[in-house]
Amino acid sequence: SPVALPPFFMRGSIIQLADGELKRVEDLKTEDFIQSAEISSELKIDSSTVERIDTGQSPNAVLIQFSVGELKAQVCVEVLVEYPFFVFGQGWSSCCPDRTTQLFELSCAKLCVGDVCVSLTLRSLR
């Protein structure tokens, strides 16, 4: 089943960066993710390119296929159309920005094939 939208995507939600700084979700910049990942001991930032967007099996859901990192690992996630992803250099983007704005008051761009989203990997499991 698709991942439901968590409460922290609501405009005005307070997000704590890795250095302790607090920002509203709508004010986050690409650098905030990059800098937070740099000082994280567990997480590493990676880029995930949108390769396909298909209709999901549930109502209002989409299947998004990502190609992750240099190794182009394939990851497919099913989310609601309003689920926002953070695109490098662009900010919040969803498959249905009007709905994201309507439900969460979060300004969004349209998520498209070729967009490069912020994703995370564990630094090391070895």
Binding site: G69, Y83, S119, T121, L122
Partner: peptide, 19 residues
């Protein structure tokens, strides 16, 4: 007011890759 960690905004943890 609830405070959420930055990494909760990233929807999935990608497969671990060797460095």
């Amino acid at each position: 007011v609830p405070v959420f960690p930055w990494h909760s905004l990233v929807p999935f943890l990608a497969p671990t890759q060797s460095d």
